[in-house]
């Protein structure tokens, strides 16, 4: 690895509110531009790992560096700034149902205090790129499950993130729709975005040829540096 890691965990532990240790002493390093899968059964800690990377959770022990910054050293404004460089596609998508597709995609740009002329054209381009160019004024409830996932991807990338975290992006999708979503994520990776996908679908992850982080009942140490070549779907 020639570049500094984009994500680094050193002995990170995280316990759930009920006292269960979800992640224990996890160490891993992710190179910039990687395309990785994170697999494991339900409640293995996949979503928690994504939350820790996206600064939505704080580890009980250990050190996390994201984009070259020790997250423990950041004040709240700096954490907010860093969060804008990390796109997150949640498993439950977290789209606003009273917002049109256009408004949903514009939202991260607005909360980053970007001006309307600055992002208006970009929202149009991103929606067109994910295949929703003709549904910009549709509300999430009017979209198919696959289109809602496309919308969530568009929302996650509007601020041009360095890292994209996708939690079960192909959940409830079948066949071509699954691969269409994965192709969008692979396109982003080719554009230089580090992509980390959490999925229960181990066959999909292992069949992709991309490195896989496996979280099990006993969250293990993933000591190696994870790096990948661009992946095709």
């Amino acid at each position: 690895m020639t570049e500094a890691p984009i994500i680094r965990f050193e002995g990170v532990s995280f316990g759930s509110p009920d006292g269960r240790r979800v992640i224990a002493g996890l160490s891993l390093t992710v190179a910039p531009g990687s395309f990785l899968f994170l697999t494991g059964p339900t409640r293995a800690g996949k979503s928690v790992l994504l939350d820790l990377i996206s600064l939505a959770a704080v580890p009980s022990r250990g050190r996390i560096d994201v984009l070259g910054q020790d997250t423990d050293d950041l004040d709240r404004d700096e954490r907010a700034t860093l969060r804008r460089r990390i796109g997150v596609m949640h498993q439950d998508l977290r789209l606003l149902n009273d917002y049109s597709a256009f408004d949903n995609v514009a939202l991260p740009a607005r909360v980053s205090r970007r001006t309307t002329p600055d992002y208006r054209e970009q929202v149009t381009e991103v929606l067109t790129w994910v295949g929703l160019g003709g549904r910009m004024d549709a509300f999430p409830s009017q979209l198919s499950p696959a289109d809602r996932r496309r919308l969530a991807i568009a929302q996650a990338v509007i601020n041009g993130p360095d890292i994209l975290l996708a939690d079960e992006p192909t959940d409830q999708l079948e066949g071509a729709a699954r691969f269409a979503i994965l192709r969008l994520l692979a396109d982003l990776n080719r554009a230089g975005v580090t992509v980390l996908i959490a999925t229960r679908d181990t066959a999909l992850a292992e069949g992709s040829g991309a490195p896989v982080i496996r979280l099990g009942a006993d969250p293990g140490q993933v000591g190696a540096t994870l790096e990948s070549e661009p992946v095709e779907f």
Binding site: A80, T81, R83, P108
Partner: peptide
Amino acid sequence: IMYRMGASD
């Protein structure tokens, strides 16, 4: 949702 998108306090 807005907080996790990077909205400051």
